[in-house]
Design a protein around this nucleic acid. Structure first.
Length: 458
RNA sequence: GUGGCUGUAGCUCAGUCGGUUAGAGCAUCGGAUUGUGGUUCCGAGGGUCGCGGGUUCGAAUCCCGUCAGCCACCCCA
């Protein structure tokens, strides 16, 4: 076996690239439907772009090195700092709100495992300059509509949403002190991933009374928004946030994605820079890692040295999403673009110079058709036609084309049944001369063969 | 970075108690009376049994190490 790709890196063979393209198509189609525009930045950035935001510990998880100009650089592990720089540099000139998306390839140096490689492609969708919770609803709707676009439904994927301000207000109302809030977040974030006793012990260590520990764990394990409204709707520390969240839910319903969404106060998204509504998308069976995560980060742009603008966004990677599509059998049947025509030897092949065969191929290509051929005069003339036709069909070609004994050029469909396959004839002289009408008729005929509605052989 | 499981052809896997030149199916390539199809038949190529060391007359097989993959931590996307 020759050397393979580096650990955590992928070779994309044509079938795999076609699947990747399928996901990218869905990402772009939905992002554009929501009026986002695409941008990109450099895959290599100054190292301090990341250490400024995340501290020096981050270096252990980066692909970083010193370049030949003695600059400390890193392959980008995330898009947000680049995005923040680009927006910040033109903050005053950009029409607000900014709605941008990107599909960067990102890199992280850490142990690869299922759903987690050292390299992946991640859709980033961000909005800058809008504080209304309508923007939060719009953002989540983009992520959910991508699931729909790929054939997934609310029984396959669930959106879990929370709001840090809401959780904060509830905790303060219950008697958690400002000083304890940080520690409580840390426990709540992991409540589903560690034993209840461990969570309880950590909350106790943070200074929470036993009754309060129970109450916090109960809320983190699952809460109905209606119950929260009843209990905290009038509390001074929580009321504003309860009301905002109610409006958010109503916007999601109106945007047509309400049935995908569950409240889950345990969604904290690390302890980092999120300031408001946060969300994650999971497969409904809970077998995979998060498909997507994001939320509001109103203070980050300023913290990174940019303008003080509210912002929100999410990232959605191709790896977990691809695993989910595989599990659900949702990849399209024909992932490859079929080739239109394959030149084979017909009964008239021997009557013409080989150059005519290449001229025919060239004329068809000039007319915009995709055409393959054997690239060997010897094989074209000596190999049995049935083998040539069979190879073309197996390669996924839509039709074979050849010179007939009477000198005409004939195409025969390779789709559908082999008996009585449809054919289309054009005079060889017109085909070789690149006659527009003749080639147009061939193109129409090909389209007709591919359209199942008008192709009884399909 | 820590621990557990697994490594045989491009893929899925056989390979007995340690015993001759490591096999099958699928896939690929060539062919089946100068020509039009999925079936069928014949044939071919393709392996440092992950890698290195050890035990042994003899190792795919047993032992140790290492690398890679998977899983769980850690951390996050």
């Amino acid at each position: 076996m020759s050397s393979a790709a580096l650990p955590g890196f992928r070779d994309f063979y044509p079938d795999e690239l076609a699947r990747r393209a399928h996901v990218f198509r869905a990402w772009r189609a939905v992002a554009r439907r929501y009026a986002f525009v695409e941008y990109d930045g450099p895959p290599l950035e100054p190292l301090d772009l990341y250490t400024k935001k995340s501290g020096d510990e981050i270096v252990g998880q980066l692909y970083n090195f010193t370049d030949k100009g003695n600059r400390e650089v890193a392959l980008r592990p995330e898009m947000t700092p680049t995005f923040a720089r680009m927006v910040g540099a033109r903050a005053n000139a950009l029409r607000k709100p900014v709605r941008w998306f990107s599909i960067p390839q990102l890199f992280r140096y850490e142990r690869a495992q299922r759903g987690r490689l050292r390299e992946h492609f991640q859709l980033n969708v961000d909005i800058v300059g809008e504080e209304s919770e309508v923007a939060d609803a719009e953002l989540l709707a983009v992520a959910i509509d991508i699931m729909r676009e790929l054939g997934l439904g609310p029984a396959d994927v669930r959106a879990r949403v929370s709001d840090r301000r809401l959780l904060n207000g509830i905790l303060l109302t219950l008697g958690v002190t400002e000083a304890q809030v940080g520690a409580v977040y840390g426990v709540v974030d992991k409540v589903a991933r560690q034993p209840r006793e461990v969570s309880a012990a950590k909350l106790g260590e943070a200074g929470l009374a036993p009754a309060l520990v129970e109450r916090v764990l109960q809320l983190a394990a699952g809460a109905e928004f209606a119950d929260l409204q009843r209990e905290f709707g009038a509390a001074p520390a929580a009321r504003e946030h309860i009301e905002r969240f109610a409006r958010y839910r109503a916007h999601l319903d109106a945007l047509g994605v309400g049935e995908w969404v569950d409240l889950d106060l345990s969604i904290v998204r690390g302890l980092a820079y999120y300031t408001g509504i946060v969300f994650e998308l999971f497969d409904a069976k809970g077998e995979l890692r998060a498909i997507c995560g994001g939320g509001r980060y109103d203070t980050l742009l300023k913290a990174l040295g940019g303008t003080d603008l509210p912002a929100l966004g999410f990232g959605m990677g191709d790896v977990v999403l691809g695993e989910l599509l595989s599990d659900r059998g949702l990849w399209p049947d024909a992932v490859q673009e079929p080739v239109d025509l394959h030149l084979v030897a017909g009964n008239g092949a021997g009557q013409r110079p080989y150059a005519d065969a290449l001229r025919l191929v060239a004329a068809l290509r000039a007319a915009g058709l995709s055409v393959n051929h054997a690239m060997s005069a010897e094989r074209y003339l000596s190999q049995a036609t049935r083998n040539q036709v069979d190879s073309a069909r197996k390669a996924g070609c839509s039709a074979a084309i050849y010179f007939r004994e009477d000198g005409e050029v004939e195409a025969v469909s390779l789709l559908g049944k082999m008996k009585d396959a449809p054919t289309h004839v054009i005079p060889a002289a017109l085909a070789l001369a690149g006659d527009a009408a003749a080639l147009h008729s061939l193109r129409d005929w090909l389209h007709q063969q591919r359209d199942p509605a008008s192709n009884p052989n399909g």
